[in-house]
Write a protein that binds this DNA or RNA. Structure first.
Lengths: 230, 230
DNA sequence: TTCAGAAGATGACAAATGTCATAGTACGCC
DNA sequence: GGCGTACTATGACATTTGTCATCTTCTGAA
């Protein structure tokens, strides 16, 4: 495949791999494999042993965990440039979350050996990974606060703004990343029916418009006000 | 103070400092200061710039964040052997959370310079810090799932079991760490009145007993069943 | 020791959210 | 093009949780 060497891959500019030396990157590139996934296919499931990490070249994956009541909670959406599975590889634990494609994806699989040897020898790389994880931890803490202190309506509004800011909109103004109502409810942590009701409500209030599953934001300011508690 | 050299400090066995070399540890020890805090006093507040990290020698601190509705959400309780503030120092950001003593505390303050130079030169240390943060991230993800998918009652029950497992019980069977009802509600993410009601309820059902603020667990199994959804 | 203020407890009610039932709608497959 | 299945939508109702008011109990400082 053309352009398939890590050294040339523009994606790595966005993640920790940029702190690798030329030689390290070469090794990674020689050991990596590329994989395509269709929407709905899993990269890995909760509890699985991971033999490496996944670097997202294209598409989006949801990271979720099944709770005792049988519902999935989506903890994070990972997109182009992000590395998935590094937490498990670093902690030498089996996966705490499932990773499932929510759009067609193209990912590189990097065996953990390449990662581990670099972690032990290149402090710059380790530090870079550490910085990324520090960032993820902050985001997770913020999610905890949102989950426990905001209403479902506020969380839905926030989710839409998040989707707009992180994945953008298409030429017709619809969110690029289209999630099913169920996925939306699993991001927000609520019943699917509740999410649907709130979406209907937002539509009636003129905050958003929809076409099938697609959602477009009409009044960003009012949505933001709602999130902020006005 | 006797025993105040990091090299001799048994606490460091529990945290990332154990991966430091003798010389690095010596430098840290020379630059550190020790501080005593009374219950209720802050180590630092959300938004503050941190010039170093705190290593807990004794006592417990709550890490919390104020949400828009004026309530604090407690994200984590840090105790003996844990290092507080490393996330902010590593990410070079101001503190995302406030750290306030929930019991009298003794902490060491380690200036960030000692940490940063070691991070850049000693991959073992960096990797050790990374592993700790990976662990924290997993815990945070689990909290997200609990917050969004469990009922308040389940979360209260879980909080009590957590307090027992992590801080133990005194000779009379009461939880060693005594939190105010408000702190409990801020851990669980609910209104104080709701937490109080649930505590009354648990008492009536014979799951716990109380004496003033102190709480003792009477039927651990039933509490666990409750958490698991039975 | 006493007293004031904080923390704990409880009732009554309102609001938010979940659950179950049912109907409409879209979309891939034959 | 039709059909079946999965997704979306909505109503009715139950349950959970929050809010406000009030009372009681504890605790620390004068």
């Amino acid at each position: 495949m053309e352009n398939s060497r890590c050294e040339n891959c523009i994606i790595r500019q966005f993640n920790s791999l940029r702190a690798m030396s030329k030689e390290e990157l070469k090794k990674v590139s020689d050991s990596k494999t590329t994989k395509k996934l269709k929407k709905g296919e899993p990269l890995f499931e909760e509890g699985e042993k991971l033999n490496g990490v996944f670097c997202v070249r294209n598409g989006v994956s949801k990271l979720s965990k099944l709770s005792a009541n049988g519902k999935d909670q989506i903890v994070k959406l990972a997109t182009k440039g992000e590395v998935i599975g590094q937490r498990s590889v670093i902690a030498e634990e089996s996966a705490n979350l499932s990773a499932i494609a929510v759009s067609d994806m193209e990912v590189c699989f990097i065996p953990k050996e390449s990662i581990n040897t670099t972690l032990q020898s290149n402090p710059n790389f380790t530090l870079e990974v550490l910085r990324h994880m520090a960032h993820d931890l902050k985001e997770a803490d913020d999610v905890i606060v949102n989950m426990s202190q905001k209403t479902v309506k506020q969380r839905v509004a926030e989710a839409f703004l998040y989707l707009k800011n992180n994945f953008g909109v298409d030429e017709d103004g619809f969110l690029m990343l289209t999630l099913s109502r169920e996925d939306i409810s699993n991001v927000v942590g609520t019943a699917t029916e509740s999410a649907i009701r709130i979406i209907s409500d937002f539509k009636k209030q003129g905050l958003i418009h929809t076409s099938g599953k697609k959602i477009g934001i009409k009044d960003e300011k009012k949505l933001q006000d709602l999130v902020d508690g006005f």
